[in-house]
């Protein structure tokens, strides 16, 4: 660290809906090739944070530096063009379109920027998720929950992102599928893409991550290397209420 510029630096980020503030002075750093996870209970502001970094929501204060560039007023498309991709909690698939069309659209911005390599990229995505290849002509809404999540991740990978942001990829999935998704996340790290992972499934997230943040009621309450957080009694406590306070 130090010499290499971080992929993403978020500092002093505040977001308010009306007068209600959802995020207070949040700071997060993602180094190249790292998996960084943000864990925390429902309503803590994790999704808000991702949406704000992506440009879907506007912030009331704070800075976002992506690939060394300080970004002020930006639209989602500009972030996609720069290499940031978000897989939202809802997956946001194009239900009435085929798997293949969904993937094609994942490369929309690359196509616009003049790259014509979507066939190779799609082959790579099919390698990661062979199940998608089998279902390439199926309409997205007919897929099972796990396949949908694979398609959502695969579609984001079609953009060959420099930073991939995943919002609750394990949400509502069976353990076997969760395991597969996390295996893919760990594998993706080898390809050099940096990952910002928001999760409820704290233990699984901390197992694959290099660094972790705990977000509670809009504030970072705890941060540190994932390996340390995983055994931190405060993390376990905030999740299970096993702290013996009663």
């Amino acid at each position: 660290m130090g010499a290499v510029e971080p992929i993403l630096v978020v500092e002093d980020l505040c977001v308010g809906y009306g007068k209600v503030e959802a995020l207070h002075h949040v700071g997060i750093v993602v180094e190249p090739g790292q998996i960084v996870t943000v864990i925390g209970p429902n309503g803590a502001g994790k999704t808000t944070m991702l949406a704000t970094v992506m440009g879907l929501l506007s912030r009331s204060r704070g800075t976002v530096r992506f690939l060394g560039e300080n970004l002020k007023d930006y639209a989602v498309e500009e972030m996609v063009a720069r290499g940031m991709n978000l897989v939202p909690e809802s997956r946001a698939l194009f239900g009435e379109m085929s798997v293949e069309e969904n993937l094609q659209l994942g490369a929309f911005m690359r196509h616009r920027l003049g790259h014509r390599d979507h066939l190779e990229t799609m082959a790579w995505v099919f390698e990661i998720f062979p199940r998608l290849k089998e279902r390439r002509d199926q309409l997205a809404f007919t897929l099972s929950g796990g396949e949908r999540q694979m398609l959502a991740v695969g579609r984001a990978l079609m953009a060959k992102p420099k930073l991939l942001m995943l919002d609750e990829p394990s949400l509502g999935l069976a353990p076997l599928i969760v395991r597969e998704i996390f295996r893919v996340i760990a594998d993706l790290k080898q390809t050099g893409v940096a990952i910002l992972l928001v999760e409820q499934n704290a233990r699984a997230a901390l197992q694959v991550a290099d660094y972790g943040y705990v977000l509670e009621t809009g504030e970072v309450s705890l941060a540190g290397p994932a390996r340390e957080l995983i055994d931190d009694p405060r993390v376990i406590e905030s999740y299970l209420g096993l702290g013996g306070k009663h």
């Binding site: 704290a202 233990r203 376990i236 999740y239």
Partner: peptide, 16 residues
């Protein structure tokens, strides 16, 4: 419920 292994698994997750 807090001591139930199935609940622990469901909540803390963990894939290993």
């Amino acid at each position: 419920v807090q001591r139930n292994p199935a609940v622990l698994q469901a909540y803390l997750g963990g894939v290993a």
